[in-house]
Design a protein around this nucleic acid. Sequence first.
RNA 1: GGCCUGGUGGCGGAGUGGUUACGCAGCGGACUGCAAAUCCGCGUACCCGAGUUCGAUUCUCGGCCAGGCCUCCA
Length: 464
Amino acid sequence: MNLVLYDTMTREKRPFTPGDPERVTMYVCGPTVYNYAHIGNARPVVVFDLLFRLLRRAYGAEHVIYAANVTDVDDRINQKAIDEGVAIDVITTRYLDAYHADMSVLGALRPNFEPRATETMAEIIDMIGRLVRNNAAYQAEGHVLFNVQAYSDYGKLSGRSMDDMIAGARVEVAPYKQHPADFVLWKPSKPGEPVWESPFGPGRPGWHIECSAMIEKTLGLPIDIHGGGNDLIFPHHENEMAQGICADHGTEYARYWLHNGFLNMGHEKMSKSLGNVVLAHDLVSRYPGEALRWALLASHYRQPLAWSDETVDQAKSGLDRLYGVLLRAATVEAEPSAPGVGFMDALEDDLNTPRAYAELFAMAQQLEAAPEEDRAHLKGELLASGQLIGFLKADPESWFQGGADPAMRARIDALIAERFTAREAKDWPTADRIRAELTAMNVEVMDNPTGATWRLKSEGAGST
RNA sequence: GGCCUGGUGGCGGAGUGGUUACGCAGCGGACUGCAAAUCCGCGUACCCGAGUUCGAUUCUCGGCCAGGCCUCCA
């Protein structure tokens, strides 16, 4: 495989070479489970799932280890637990279960590890201890703070100088900080919040240290690929790296840093304060998972993605086209095949999914037009390509008819039979009346010489 | 204020120093009892200005516009 990835650290595309091809490691910052995931949260999940699939294909599934953390200690979780008057694990279990279900609908494979902050406490405390011992951290007023001046490359990932950070500081600096950019590793818990004992006093960990400790525990440092949304570059990933390196890990934390662009609602960021949050949890009940996944991968992962119902409708239409080709090739037995060469080239070029989609359409077009003897191979190639990245898994007929329950199905079949009789008798008014009836049921009829097939029409936009 | 992205046809969205993206939608034709699906064909684009160049949508500079990060955030 000639995989090339854009590395945030070097700001250029670089050929991907793992430290050990027998053990390729990837870590992605996962959810904080205090609410249902919104569709923006789902973008990195799907993007890095795609990369996970490519790596597994290239190095063998057993040689790729993917970890995504679950942050289950957090102010928002605490607040929710207090609001509902329940223990925090009631909150975290509820939303983690929903998260797993929703991401599964989007076709995301489960990572090998999903470490939880609460289950990594010993390692977090141990890592903080090492940072203190190395003079990369200090204690002050019940806190343990990371000393950014101990790490000369601080700011390298995000491209900021220490001066920039001071100049750009918009928040009041806590008086106990030695440097304005110093950040919390351990802090006292507020009343009512969960608390853990530690050599630095009772309290709870800061957010950044969780990830460093979980990577150290589940994958070992350095890792090959670290991913996340581009809003995490600073401060989260910058801080993670500083911690990891200063906690006895030489000079390298992650060989490749990958960051996905944001999903926006129109021109605005999705946010609670703007009231434009769209939950993945709601979308999965309105659209097929593959259509949502297609929409999420329809633009390059580093580009911003403007989300709307139309985005999904267009995605659905594109998939309809591919499934339509497969439906017409239903009697062709697919020959086992590798994904198309051009298709793989596109994906290996920094996950160029738009180009990969174009290849998919080209393969479909070829299959549609090919002489009978070539179709088995072409169908196999199309399926192998699509399925590699999580598409074309459905039976074509159920893709188009899946929304119909058995009763509706029986009714449709009866109407079509009735209409066929009318057509045989050239009774066009009756045939048209029946078709109008089917149309009213959202059913589209496609006549052929021996009868008719049908499909459910797309629901269309505007149902939000 | 500091740092950083991006501005491509009606919409989504790649890519390239000189040639086709691709998809959705639209239009014309074939097919059809009429349709749908399919097939064939068509259209409209590269924010503005200057520079480099034989030639720029693509490189450089400036401008305008939009968005992000600097505080929790995918």
